[in-house]
Design a protein around this nucleic acid. Structure first.
Lengths: 161, 161
DNA sequence: ATTGAAATAGCGTCAAT
DNA sequence: ATTGACGCTATTTCAAT
């Protein structure tokens, strides 16, 4: 999951940075000591490099991955939202607000007939319908919202590098 | 992002568990000591509760969120895959293999005309096309793959609870 | 930028409740 | 299940390279 960002594509990561990224991708709570050991550098160096990776925006954050069903949101959906008119202000408002809508896991501004895909976890089918009506269909500029239930959602487990 | 899981929806989380989940969702590297302070419990208790949350599958994992562009994959796409025949074996094979395909961030088995949505980050437009041809279109059982470029991808930042 | 060392802080086991 | 205390390990700063 990524930032708004047009990351300035700084100089490419060296082998050690890549290693650190991969390790933290796999286990975001791995201790600095173990990271250093695995990467073959001193602990203090490791600290500096990981901080730098965060500052440079390579590591956007480290987050617990929560099972929505276990926290009362067993119904997941991907909602395809189409805008009418395509006024820039509509997109900007949507972009600013959609991450904070209740149950939103992610949202993707895409090319093609659909403008946005919104990944949401809801308490029930009823709650999902309410979400779509209240926050999407009802929104100025939105022409249509098409909801697809998610039967199963999988995380990529290969390293990105 | 969630597991295959049909989580047995154990007894609902109490207020402290919810707090811990929310804290780790926001900052997966928060120290046990600070977690305990924020949740108002002893450090040792906190350790036990977090372990339990993992064992119960509430916390699926803790992972660094990497900017794909910063690791050489600046082109993101959501690919809608449609299967023909809908043989169970095709779905099962796909489910097992798709998380390990290069650059796959996530995949969603959905209802409707599309069967799977595959979220991928590629090195270039060419590499994206190759990915689709090699791993999706070319796959037994796959009828069609429709690629939508992702202009921007946003993470939900409200708590799930 | 990387390092080792030293001081500080955190982790995790345990016996008790 | 929760706790405080204790021994151990990890983090982080810093002066030096």
């Amino acid at each position: 999951m990524a930032k708004p960002v047009q990351t300035s594509e700084e100089r490419p990561l060296d082998a050690i940075d890549q290693r650190l990224v991969r390790l933290l991708e796999e286990d975001g709570r791995m201790s600095n000591a173990m990271l250093a050991r695995e990467a073959g550098i001193a602990e203090s160096t490791c600290l500096v490099r990981v901080r730098s990776l965060r500052e440079r925006g390579v590591i956007l954050g480290i987050h617990a991955d929560i099972d929505p069903a276990a926290v009362g949101r067993p119904v997941q959906a991907m909602i395809a939202v189409r805008f009418g008119g395509h006024r820039r202000s509509h997109f900007e408002a949507f972009r600013d607000e959609v991450p904070r809508l209740p149950g939103v896991i992610g949202a993707y501004h895409v090319s093609g007939a659909t403008d946005y895909l919104v990944h949401v976890a809801a308490e029930s089918a009823d709650a999902l319908r309410d979400f779509v009506l209240d926050h999407l269909t009802n929104r100025p500029g939105v022409l249509h919202a098409e909801t697809a239930l998610i039967f199963e959602s999988l995380r990529g487990d290969g390293p990105l590098t």
